[in-house]
Design a protein around this nucleic acid. Structure first.
Lengths: 201, 201
DNA sequence: CTCGCGTTTAACAATTTTGTTCAACACAAA
DNA sequence: TTTGTGTTGAACAAAATTGTTAAACGCGAG
């Protein structure tokens, strides 16, 4: 049946994503994925001719997801800059909570195959960065932020949001947290980051 | 010869580290390592009985290296807090420049095998964190920092220093940098981070 | 019912990666 | 030179992973 087949196809891809992006098991085999999905490994070859095709698909969507993540950093209109940054942090943290190891996967793949096509940034991205620069200038003028290059601002934001998830096992160990302690720690991040960015918080 | 043998043994391990920590090729095989080292793959088995033993050795030393990294964050005496933070950032950035993908490797391994022994933190680490809290309190009193939990402070510092290296391929793409542009960007990080942490910079 | 069709499965085959063996080699010591 | 020891290389073997095939299965349409 058409819908069912699509279901399994989806199940396979979603399971692969879960293993890579959520569990961070970058060395997972097709068998691992089949087991986790509760299907026969041959089904993977039925829907995706080869391991590489499945992986490429997953990679491609991961790139798209990250790109979306990034786009949000400098999009959204009709908001005060403050509200915008807040919603960006919410978004980044939410995405990292869903897919803590997305960046891990992307970087591992990109390093393996350095000539993987880099998603070309749309022209509007550059325009948005200009807008971000203006926003920052306004805050600086108002004395609520220090001068900072937009590029550093963006990287700071992503670093502060993503790293604690991406490096969960070492962060947990480094500051001696239980699973609950880690969850609590994560829940405090937004306030910490906002406070770090804006002088008047 | 004793010294020569040790040399090759070292060469193998160092090459493995280079591939994992510097080039970030987490999926490298023993053949890849042998090729990169310019030796026969059997030599790897001669010095290290199996792939796993080599990998464990590399992993163990990576943990030690990260642990050293972390220890520095809250050690060093006879320095103003300001100077201490500065030297910590220098150290973290230097380490990340040498081994940009160290954390990537560690996290990938830890995720694969969740019961890998976590290096127990020495008792002094806790004492140092106490000291860090005091330092922060002093800066807060002086109006040169905002109140922040020591744990968040540590994670912020590591995030801001390590992430731009660890995620180099996506950062480069995200803010459209050439290799030279990336190097320049990295060289600006220290000032950016210091400015973010201390209110009076 | 049974036919058709998409899907699943188990078994098999090919490939890749890892591990082993043994003869050849280098070289220092006797 | 010869011997001994440690190292290397090529060939081989084993294991793990991926890819293929064909038969069986489920199920709706005719």
């Amino acid at each position: 049946m058409e819908t069912l087949s699509t279901d399994v196809e989806r199940l396979i891809k979603d399971t692969a994503k879960r293993i890579f992006f959520v569990e961070g098991k970058l060395h997972a085999t097709t068998q691992d994925i089949a087991d986790a999905a509760g299907i026969n490994r041959a089904s993977i070859h039925y829907y995706y001719r080869s391991r590489k095709i499945l992986f490429d698909k997953v990679f491609e969507e991961a790139m798209a997801e990250f790109h979306a993540k990034l786009t949000v950093v400098v999009s959204q209109e009709n908001l005060t800059f403050r509200k915008l940054v807040e919603s960006v942090i919410d978004f980044l943290l939410k995405k990292s909570l869903e897919h803590p190891f997305l960046e891990l996967f992307l970087v591992a793949e990109l390093n393996q195959d350095p000539h993987l096509k880099h998603a070309r940034l749309p022209e509007e991205a550059r325009a948005r960065r200009m807008m971000l620069k203006e926003y920052i200038a306004e805050e600086v003028a108002a004395g609520t932020m220090k001068p900072i290059e937009a590029e550093h601002f963006i990287v700071n934001l992503i670093s502060l949001c993503s790293f604690p998830f991406l490096a969960k096992p070492i962060v947990k160990n480094a500051i001696e947290l239980s699973e609950e302690g880690y969850v609590k720690f994560i829940s405090e991040r937004k306030a910490v980051i906002m406070k770090l960015i804006f002088l008047d918080l």
